[in-house]
């Protein structure tokens, strides 16, 4: 499944990405990489961005929906 279908406040593990190498590199270097345990901690209204938190190190990243739908995850 992709992160867009994930439920808030539940832990997921990233298993891969559907995007181009530039996007993937950015996500890696910001702290979202395969194997990372993440949670959606907030969803902005009106189809706004999602706040994704790497629960291993506490990094929080705001991601637009287009990008969120490119992150493949599995339930932890």
């Amino acid at each position: 499944m992709t992160l867009i279908n994930a439920k808030p406040n539940k832990t997921y593990i990233i298993i891969g990405f559907n995007g181009g190498p530039n996007l993937i590199q950015r996500l890696y270097s910001m702290g979202l990489y395969p194997g990372a345990r993440i949670q959606i901690v907030s969803v902005a209204p009106l189809r706004g961005p999602l706040m994704v938190k790497n629960i291993d190190n506490g990094i929080q990243i705001a991601l637009g929906r287009g990008i969120v739908s490119k992150i493949i995850v599995t339930e932890a």
Binding site: P49, A62, R65
Partner: peptide, 10 residues
């Protein structure tokens, strides 16, 4: 408009 990617410090 490109998607948002931005770290939000605690």
């Amino acid at each position: 408009a490109p998607g948002l990617i931005m770290e939000i410090p605690g």
